[in-house]
């Protein structure tokens, strides 16, 4: 199997559509007859990264690279950036607005959910420019 690449746009502030890109990718992964538990891990990580763009950034893209060994997801956004990544990684820490929280977003669990469900996570952020998150989930991880 060659590496397959998919790209989806993400619109900042559009909570109704949030999850759309992740759902599309999950449908693609379902067709590859991978272990459903692995697909769910990837789905959680993608969804959280997508919601972060919707909640905090102006716009972004989700790129998904599928190879036989791993799924790599790269989410890039134009946005305010993350001033303190270490703090943002702490469960419960969130800068989401009240309106966003009322919808059940902004629990401060997004990045820790991503960390728990990926085998490798890299975050690069520039203030007033944007954030790039790259995450890798191995397909043949232990227990698969």
């Amino acid at each position: 199997m060659k590496e397959m690449t998919y790209e989806f746009p993400i619109e900042g502030g559009d909570f109704i559509k949030a999850g759309h890109a992740s759902s599309n990718v999950k449908k693609i992964l379902n067709q590859l007859s991978l272990d459903p538990a692995i697909i769910r891990r990837i789905a959680v990580a993608m969804y959280e990264a997508e919601v972060n763009v919707v909640a905090h950034a102006y716009r972004g893209t989700m790129k998904v690279f599928i190879s036989p060994a791993a799924i790599r997801v790269r989410v890039e956004d134009e946005g305010p950036g993350i001033p303190d990544i270490e703090k943002a990684m702490q469960e419960g820490y969130s800068t989401a607005s009240d309106k966003v929280r009322e919808m059940g977003f902004g629990a401060g669990m997004g990045l820790s959910n991503i960390k728990k469900n990926t085998d490798k996570l890299e975050i690069q952020s520039k203030i007033n420019q944007g954030t790039v998150i790259e995450m890798i989930t191995r397909i043949k991880s232990k227990g698969a």
């Binding site: 909570f15 109704i16 949030a18 999850g19 759309h20 992740s22 759902s23 999950k26 459903p36 769910r40 789905a43 959680v44 993608m46 969804y47 919808m103 059940g104 977003f105």
Partner: peptide
Amino acid sequence: MQTHKNIIAVASLKD
């Protein structure tokens, strides 16, 4: 108690 569309994405992604 959430009723907005995003609950469907969550339920679907988590099976």
